[in-house]
Design a protein around this nucleic acid. Structure first.
Lengths: 333, 333
DNA sequence: ATGAAAGCGCTAACAA
DNA sequence: TTGTTAGCGCTTTCAT
């Protein structure tokens, strides 16, 4: 039933050489006489031989496959990172097993074991709650791991990201400088350390630098979704906020449109600044001011770092922090 | 250096049974005495044994991995499909090797061979130019293939999609019914058969039903990008169009905003209708009217169909056509 | 420069 | 119900 598959053995026989020699030419080993190489190449061509990567993986203990764990494929922030990862993975001839975790801890655990069973050579993990359990899972995996666009408060796992604290501080200070005193802090769950330990810290820092008291009531935890943001309009008015820092662009788009649809003028009556500078920022009206970050590069650099780890190359820095910026568009004055 | 790996052999030895028995319990084969099973399970637990999927793949000729070829990860249309694929793949215990093709034919070819070499059990292909070369590549692959949200004019490859001709006809008729006579047709390259053979056909059909002549000048081929759409504003005015059918939501968002920024009121002076009903449609102002399609389901059903193909189950229909609809929002009158 | 042969870790007949 | 034994297709010493 199977399309008859031609193996290295067939090639060896036809070319009247040993399997070892065929293997050598396939793998570009220089220790082959040019004439032999050519003969083998011809037979390969003629037989349309294609090496079986699974067999190769078993024998060599390298699969040239890496695992990528992504919380949500449809979130631009992550898919932009993924594009960076994908590009350099391809450059280095790695395939990607892409698995969604849905930001679900059990699934993350399961997925790691699963990737491990598939003998991936490395793993790129996106997700913002590096629990101890997760660390354990990381540890018992033979494959090196790097965190992309995520954060490890304990600085144990190699990571590529930006300085979230500084970025948020700057964004919020920017809002403060224009006279805003009641600035809402809108983002995902505080269970995520990127929110709890980084963004919130930046927010508080900006407040304290301006000697503005912190008000719990201005902190909104919600889903990273347009809808969730849209629904926040009323609450935002109720707490008399005049501006908001938002941790996700789709969420911010929801906030923006919710406000607008409720008759609040942005930016005249309410300023909005968001975090990820994805394509959404250009699509809304007004267009959203944002922290800018090199999304593609974060992915690309993560993957590059992973290749080094997989080759046991020496690493200068476990954590690489890429530059961020601030882009003023029209959702702020 | 390697974390010492425990194999099925170790388990067999410790449990004082044969490898075959261990293999049986790992694979849930019922032909094992409960007591034996328990003993083996205990040892597995104690040794923390994890089956090597690569070895398994080599021996069984099944990798429980499928390949997914996607033109652009960051395009919502495709990432929504991917989510559907991913969910049911996970449900059926398949992993996904995700590869971007960048709508590049050579890359598509290469990627198929690559997936083939990795012995994937099946492939889901998204892309809209099924060339003969591609068909050849499909054929020489041992794995079954299904097209998701794409189109095979020759109806040779199993496919899940909607009736694009009917959907576009309806959308354009809708525009016509409101008095529009000069309706622009804005979409990607006419090299893609979904544009050339399906969407355009629907467009022409709607025109002809209304006895409106076809005008070449109203057809715009461009990238599927916001920017490309944004730049079209002037050209759209130059040809005196009063409405546009657009084949992609980001592209449509660009058209919409470009028009608005050029001082044209949508929908009063110009109506826009788009094709994919992704989340972008809700984010723009005005919100975009659109053809609706069950994006997630297209992905999910594709994957389900693929599982059947992989199990050699009999298939009722090679091509499954899911229902579409029309959603009026505020970019049309 | 080339070949022989022993695995890699597992599944799947086939026997018992 | 359980064990024995070939492989699966390739890489990789170790000889030559």
């Amino acid at each position: 039933m199977d399309k008859q598959t031609v193996t290295i053995y067939d090639v060896a026989r036809e070319a009247a050489v040993s399997m070892a020699t065929v293997s050598r030419v396939v793998n570009g080993n220089p220790n082959v006489k040019p004439a032999t190489r050519q003969k083998v190449l011809d037979v390969i061509d003629q037989l349309d031989y294609r090496p079986n990567a699974v067999a190769r993986g078993l024998a060599s203990k390298k699969t040239t496959t890496i695992g990528v764990i992504i919380p949500d494929l449809t979130n631009s922030y992550f898919s932009e990172l993924a594009r960076g990862i994908d590009d350099v993975a391809m450059m280095y001839k790695y395939n990607i097993i892409l698995t969604s975790s849905d930001e679900n801890h059990d699934k993350e655990m399961q997925v790691i074991d699963n990737l491990s069973a598939k003998q991936v050579d490395g793993i790129i993990f996106m997700g913002n709650q590096i629990t101890d359990e997760l660390r354990t899972a990381f540890d018992r995996t033979h494959a090196p791991i790097v965190l992309a666009g995520s954060v490890d408060p304990k600085h144990q796992v190699p990571t590529v990201n930006i300085d979230y604290v500084a970025a948020v501080t700057e964004a919020v200070s920017n809002l403060i400088n224009r006279g805003n005193k009641r600035i809402a802090f809108v983002t995902g769950s505080m269970d995520e350390s990127i929110n709890r330990d980084y963004r919130l810290k930046g927010y508080k820092q900006a407040l304290s630098e301006a000697r503005i008291g912190f008000d719990d009531g201005l902190v909104f935890q919600t889903d990273y979704s347009y809808k969730a943001g849209y629904k926040l309009a009323k609450a935002l008015q109720d707490v008399k906020a005049t501006a908001a820092f938002v941790g996700d662009d789709e969420l911010a788009a929801g906030v923006l449109n919710g406000l607008t649809d409720a008759g609040i003028r942005v930016p005249e009556d309410f300023e909005v600044i968001t975090s990820n500078d994805t394509r959404f920022t250009e699509m809304t009206r007004p267009r959203m001011s944002s922290i800018t970050q090199p999304l593609y590069d974060i992915g690309a650099v993560s993957m590059r770092l992973l290749t080094k780890l997989m080759n046991n190359e020496s690493i200068n820095e476990q954590t690489v922090v890429l530059p961020y910026g601030l882009k003023k568009r029209t959702s702020t004055k």
